[in-house]
Amino acid sequence: MKRYIAKRLLQTIPTLFGVSLLSFSLLYLFPGDPAEFVAQIRYGIEPSPQVVEEVRRELGLNEPFLIRYVHWLSHVIRGNFGISWTEGEPVIKLIMQRFPASAELFFATFAISIAFAVFLGILSAIYKDKAIDHFCRIFSLLGISIPSFWLGLMLIWIFSVQLHLLPAFGYGGLRHLILPVLTWSFSFMAIKTRFVRSCLIEELSKEYVVVARAKGLKDRVVVLRHAFRNALIPIITYFSLSIHHLIIGSIMVEVVFSWPGLGSLLVESVFKRDFPVVQALVLISGVMFVFVNIAVDLLYAVIDPRIRYGE
């Protein structure tokens, strides 16, 4: 197992190189001259060509691509993502300022939607084609088809504008968290509920389930201990693959609710062409995704005894 983990970590190195190369190239893929933007920000509209050249040299933009990439990477490895062009502050500081808000929203949504998806999925599998199942089906269908930005605005209109119960936007205590989490979970859990249901229904039709019942076990034990543990394998794969939906979704939800997280930082930075920040955020989300995948692979071995690494 330890050898397997070491092997997997080594294997991530080429992937991480690719991710870093791509996020670094963003600067070159975007149209326009970055030196001009920075000069505009610093010295007002229409800077003279000399000023632009000066800025270009200062930012090191005159150097060849590869040298700049290596330079950037060597700093990034040490946790230095450079200085924000617009804020004049270290990128890492900006990110750390926004990180707690994003993490709060991310984990609250993740936990709530997984818990509900599993709970409703199990319920609708057990009561297949009964009222509860139909209710869950409609619920999921709505979650899939209603766009989150619209749902977010509607919730703001109902709970903030009309009922004055919850704040419409901003970051603060638990009350601020409710609407964004509700909006985001509703769509995130929708397909997952259906997925849990169909995985569990498939497992419930297997021979070992009848055998478990033949032992005189209670239905609850048969479903949870026997069928659900087997259904977990595809469920975990699917849930982990959907984490990038969560990362992408965060951008939209944070913008709608003016949530001061990394998603809204990314959008702001893109509009301001603050490339060091964009590069850092793209790199961080890519790296996160790689490590989530490793964690999931290791989780398989915990759940499924047929998967044993490096033995």
Binding site: Y208, V211, K215, G216, R229, N230, R306
Partner: peptide, 20 residues
């Protein structure tokens, strides 16, 4: 009654739970 008074020996394939 099941398992305690009347027990069942099922057919071999797939009758055991793979994860227990």
């Amino acid at each position: 009654l099941r398992g305690k008074e009347i027990a069942w020996i099922p057919q071999s394939q797939n009758s055991l739970n793979p994860v227990l």
